[in-house]
């Protein structure tokens, strides 16, 4: 039990950050018109592509003889990039169409 409390205490800043972010996430999208649900979902999908930063760290910190980390790291960089690039481009394509008809 003490371990858990110690963990919370050690990471208290992160935990505050998480809690505030949760509320922020709720607040930011709670009044979205249903027209924008799909682009919003797609945009959020692109944003969690930030996981690519972790992939870069895996790849970048891999020792030259740690082939497992090198191969998996390379693979995860590709996967993360797909998520980021694909996500933002698809979202932009959806929103582009909304623009056109507005004129």
């Amino acid at each position: 039990m003490e371990q858990i409390f110690a963990f919370i205490s050690e990471n208290i800043r992160f935990i505050y950050l998480i809690i505030l972010m949760v509320f922020l996430g709720i607040e930011v999208i709670s009044h979205v018109p249903s027209v924008l649900h799909t682009p919003l979902m797609s945009g959020a999908n692109a944003i969690h592509g930030v996981v690519i930063v972790g992939a870069i760290i895996v790849m970048g910190r891999a020792e030259p003889d740690n082939y497992l980390a090198l191969v998996l790291g390379f693979f995860s960089v590709i996967l993360g990039t797909l998520n980021v690039v694909g996500g933002f481009v698809v979202t932009d394509r959806m929103l582009e169409m909304f623009k056109k008809k507005k004129k």
Partner: peptide
Amino acid sequence: GILVGSAGTIL
């Protein structure tokens, strides 16, 4: 990550 986690859940 957390932002998408919470926004995604609400959505």
